[in-house]
């Protein structure tokens, strides 16, 4: 997969670097694309970094199947437990901060210091969302006054499988800022990583795989956003669609929204331009975007 430099004679003490193959993350495993395709990923200055798997329509389908299958385990976990798992993601990510800082710096063409700050902000974002896990229901739900001898509660519940088109610019902080709120609510998801900067997403998948996130809860696809997005928007077993990754492309966003309407997916519409991810999130709105409201009536006891 990875293009290697021309072979040099190996003298005593010198060793060949072992390079990583960047693959997909589907159902808790790291498969190559079923299509066998890959594409070149360049760094901020246009030099070849690695080849990433170029996911196909069928990979997207498999990812949705994996996400659907993982749904009950993740949505059935207690809110407290989900919070712990997300906090664990932050812990593991912190431990690999150097690796992420290096990857973000090369992917986005940032200085080492700025890349480091982006990684730190990412860890903090996971902790922030982990804290919301057992709190957003109090904010998004309500006890409703009704004219009768009943308690009436509205509670947010996960919508199911959410397809996330990750931001194209911010390869780690932006990605986690859209991924974490989907997970907090108890949804499982299929993430299409930034097309030009997919490598931090694949490394994040390794973090998720070792943080007690049940396999299949998050599935990461790398490849062409314009190829994968319509498949996910069309898919009748996808319940939500985050269009953040097509920010600025109004025509594509409109097409995807029309496709998503077929089974009335929950939608996060594409912003006009990619937001500034370093800004603190505006409350639990993103979490509640991926929740359905369930209202129950209960007789008042004596």
């Amino acid at each position: 997969m990875v293009r290697r430099p021309a072979a040099r004679p190996v003298r005593g003490g010198e060793r060949l670097e072992v390079r990583k193959t960047y693959k997909l993350y589907v159902g808790g495993a790291f498969p190559r694309s079923e299509s066998g395709r890959s594409y070149e990923v360049l760094d901020g200055r246009g030099r070849l970094l690695a080849n990433a798997a170029r996911a196909s329509r069928k990979d997207a389908r498999d990812a949705v199947v994996a996400a659907r299958k993982a749904g009950p385990a993740w949505s059935g976990a207690t809110a407290y437990n989900r919070g712990q798992v997300l906090y664990r993601v932050a812990e593991v990510l912190e431990g690999r901060a150097d690796q992420f800082a290096a990857e973000v710096a090369t992917a986005e063409g940032l200085t080492a210091a700025r890349a480091r700050r982006a990684v730190e902000a990412t860890v903090d974002r996971w902790v922030w969302y982990a804290g919301w896990a057992d709190k957003f229901a109090q904010v998004g739900g309500s006890a409703n006054p009704v004219a009768g001898p009943y308690f009436n509660f509205s509670v947010p519940e996960p919508t199911g499988v959410v397809a996330v088109l990750a931001p194209q610019g911010s390869s780690l902080l932006g990605l986690c800022s859209v991924l974490a709120p989907v997970m907090v609510g108890g949804n499982s998801c299929v993430v299409v990583a930034s097309e030009a900067r997919p490598l931090p997403a694949v490394t994040l998948a390794e973090v998720l795989a070792t943080s007690d996130v049940p396999g299949g809860t998050v599935n990461v696809l790398t490849g062409r956003t314009a190829e994968l997005a319509p498949v996910l928007a069309d898919h009748l077993d996808v319940n939500g669609l985050d269009l953040t990754g097509v920010a600025g492309d109004a025509a594509l966003a409109a097409d995807l929204e029309a496709r998503a309407a077929e089974n009335t997916k929950r939608l996060h519409r594409a912003p006009g331009a990619e937001p500034d991810w370093t800004a603190a999130p505006d409350g639990p709105h993103r979490i509640l975007t991926w929740c359905e409201t369930k209202t129950v009536w209960h007789p008042v006891g004596t």
């Binding site: 949705v64 659907r68 069309d234 898919h235 009748l236 077993d237 077929e262």
Partner: peptide
């Protein structure tokens, strides 16, 4: 239809 289907249906 060309769309992947859902077990919900």
């Amino acid at each position: 239809t060309g769309r992947y289907h859902s077990p919900d249906r």
